[in-house]
């Protein structure tokens, strides 16, 4: 089988994680970044750097867009025009209109579009979805999805308070899971507290609290936080109930390996990286294999719901989302 040719755009933290995962799948990767960091990143990972977006897209099977959100639309449209498949870091776009444009164009052109919603590839969530899809939870009643993390660097760039801060950023994880498990969302209400606009200093704290009403009648509470200290650096948990019972998870529960006492630095074991699982699944799809566990419509739904959350927090009103073919 021919080696998959991937054009990685961007050279920040996410680009680095994706690049390692692509190399792990056996793909050949060319890296382009307009910030001058592509060469160093490519050299470290055994990829090659190229000098322009056009050069990156030329002959590529897929582009992986890891640039700041504001540039996703332009790069995605260029890839679609060139017939190059797309992996795009979340969120797909900075607005629902841009996201719709990308998804419509990709569908018209027959270009595959996979959003990098990496948490769907984490085992607890994948297993939760399997249980729900197999009917083990019966009819869905309530889900609580909790994400908290410490942001290790100051917030750069300029983002207005109206843009929603954490609601359109980290909260996308919880929203995507709620949507994956319980389906279409018809109503969104959210509160947002803490540092809301960028730039913001290191250690900025924020809390987003959203209530989603699904077309099925199920309800989700999605909580998303930037914490004041890296203790713990990340904490995720969920509790999902239906007529068939409940499923819960907490990342604080020990798995195979943990440091039982003492200071052991960064020692630890977390199994296969979610990015490895994710890029392998995408690579197989680009090579003509089965479709991955998520696609363009999921990217669009996540943007719609998080944008509705931002709008709700800004206006103080619940926001209705029309869902085709569903009773509101």
């Amino acid at each position: 089988m021919r080696r998959l040719e991937v054009a990685l755009i961007g050279a920040g933290l996410i680009a680095r994680l994706h690049l390692d995962a692509w190399i792990g799948t056996g793909a050949a990767v060319r890296v382009f970044s307009d910030d001058g960091r592509a060469a160093d990143l490519a050299r470290e990972a055994g990829a090659r750097a190229v000098g322009s977006l056009a050069e990156a897209l030329d002959g590529a099977d897929a582009v992986d867009i890891c640039t700041p959100t504001g540039s996703h639309h332009e790069i995605a449209m260029a890839a679609i025009a060139a017939g190059v498949g797309i992996v795009c870091e979340k969120p797909l776009a900075a607005s629902t209109a841009e996201a719709e444009e990308i998804v419509d164009a990709a569908e018209r052109a027959g270009v595959r579009l996979y959003p990098a919603h990496d948490v769907r590839f984490a085992q607890p969530y994948a297993r939760l979805h399997e249980l729900v899809a197999a009917g083990r939870l019966g009819a869905g009643s309530v889900g609580r999805f909790y994400f908290a993390a410490y942001h290790p660097r100051p917030w750069t760039g300029h983002v207005s308070a109206e843009a929603g801060g954490i609601l359109t950023d980290q909260m996308l994880h919880g929203v995507d899971l709620a949507y994956w498990v319980f389906g279409d969302v018809v109503r969104v209400h959210a509160y947002y507290q803490g540092d809301i606009a960028a730039p913001a200093p290191e250690g900025a704290v924020a809390t987003g609290t959203a209530v989603l009403t699904h077309a099925s009648g199920a309800l989700s509470q999605v909580v998303s936080r930037w914490t004041a200290t890296p203790k713990p650096p990340v904490r995720v948990a969920f509790h999902v109930s239906g007529t068939g019972g409940t499923v819960r998870y907490d990342s604080e529960w020990p798995q195979e390996v943990r440091v039982a006492d003492g200071e052991a630095g960064t020692f630890g074991y977390a199994g296969e990286s979610v990015f490895t699982t994710e890029m392998r699944e995408f690579a197989q799809a680009f090579a003509g294999g089965p479709e991955p566990r998520l696609g363009a419509r999921d990217a669009l739904a996540a943007v719609r719901i998080t944008q509705a959350a931002a709008k709700s927090a800004w206006t103080g009103r619940a926001v209705e989302l029309p869902v085709k073919g569903a009773a509101a």
Binding site: T209, L219, G316
Partner: peptide, 25 residues
């Protein structure tokens, strides 16, 4: 201010909400 959503998935009776999320500001 209070926002709330409820459903009757577990009770099966529309008048008896069996799930409720309430947000208070």
């Amino acid at each position: 201010q209070v926002y709330a959503q409820a459903n009757s998935v577990l009770s099966g009776r529309p008048q008896a909400e069996s799930a409720a999320l309430v947000s208070v500001r």
